[in-house]
């Protein structure tokens, strides 16, 4: 049987070779070739990360990768993990999987195959260095999610939501002054070409990724095939995390090495100025989400 895997990222994205292809191979090996996973990269099955969830629910593809942040209303609890200070960039995925049952209820319309925490969203700016929240005042900053929007607003900036594919043109023409996105964007989305400064070191949002499967397609598999998907998916979570964190670090270093670009690593004092504000945002969002969210923060905090 052939399972279609919808991926909106280009075939050159590090995730493809480092996570999705190994996932496909592993499923095939574990089922002795009975299950085959075919990757459709670059939005071949329909473009746009926001529709990925629907593609799986509506049977366009059996498997798909995306971020819960694109359909926030479906994943309020999962998105608690992206708030500043809730999980750690290096150990986030492990922490999440240690408490995976806390999130399963949000994935009941599909089968959750993989879930990994990403690299931190950092701040690329077009032509002004940012070292303190004061520097952000009045800046138009692209944000990837609602929580990140709240964060930028609290820091004093003006959040603008915009799909990742439009950041380059918007920053080049000055429609935005900066963008919050993880370090892979230096290369994957060419932000190294249009941003002069990159600020890292403060606590920020860490947007998780998922791979999901159509529930009926999963239920129709034999028990062996199900466990093949589950174990390959679990492994893909680790690989996805590893690829993202390594690539993001490389992206940050690559930015620093480029001519005329400045990497700003905040000192502890400088970072504290941001973190004090961020802490309030986390508290506020968790409070709005209620008891369940607080339980998650406590659980993840205990690792």
């Amino acid at each position: 049987e052939d399972l279609k895997f919808a991926n909106y990222m280009a075939a050159t994205h590090p995730y493809v070779g480092g996570t999705f292809e190994p996932f496909a191979k592993s499923v095939e090996q574990k089922t002795d070739g009975k299950l085959k996973v075919t990757l459709y990269n670059g939005g071949e099955l329909g473009s746009g990360p926001a529709e990925q969830y629907s593609r799986v629910v509506d049977d366009v593809a059996e498997l798909a990768v995306s971020l819960p942040g694109y359909t926030s209303s479906k994943f309020p609890l999962t998105l608690v993990t992206e708030l500043p200070g809730v999980i750690d960039e290096d150990t986030g995925t492990k922490t999440i999987w240690n408490h995976i049952d806390l999130f399963q209820s949000e994935f009941r319309r599909v089968k959750l195959v993989s879930l990994w925490s990403s690299a931190e969203n950092i701040l690329y700016t077009r032509d002004e260095a940012v070292k303190s929240p004061d520097d952000i005042k009045g800046m138009k900053i692209r944000v990837p999610s609602r929580n990140t929007g709240k964060l930028v607003e609290a820091w004093g900036g003006t959040p603008v939501s915009m799909p990742v594919s439009e950041i380059y043109n918007a920053m080049q023409t000055g429609v935005i002054d900066g963008a919050m996105i993880d370090g892979t964007a230096t290369r994957a989305f060419k932000l190294g070409e249009v941003a002069k400064y990159l600020t890292v070191g403060m606590e920020t949002t860490i947007s998780p990724f998922y791979i999901i499967m159509n529930r009926d397609a999963f239920e129709n598999l034999t028990d062996d095939e199900k466990s093949a998907i589950e174990s390959a998916g679990r492994k893909a979570s680790e690989l996805g995390h590893e690829v993202q964190v390594t690539e993001a670090k490389k992206g940050i270093e690559a930015f620093a090495d480029m001519d005329g670009k400045t990497l700003i690593r905040l000192s502890d004092d400088q970072a504290a100025a941001f973190d004090k504000i961020s802490e309030k945002v986390t508290k506020q969002v968790v409070q709005q989400q209620g008891d369940q969210a607080e339980k998650i923060v406590d659980a993840l905090g205990s690792k």
Binding site: K4, L45, G46, S47, G48, A50, E51, S54, R55, D58, D59, V60, P163, E166
Partner: peptide, 22 residues
């Protein structure tokens, strides 16, 4: 891919086209 897939494609692509920002 079967009838369900075709219907799903029809729906997701119609909606994403008419709700597309650009």
């Amino acid at each position: 891919e079967g009838f369900r897939s075709a219907g799903g494609l029809l729906l997701t692509e119609s909606y994403s086209a008419v709700s597309g920002y650009t």
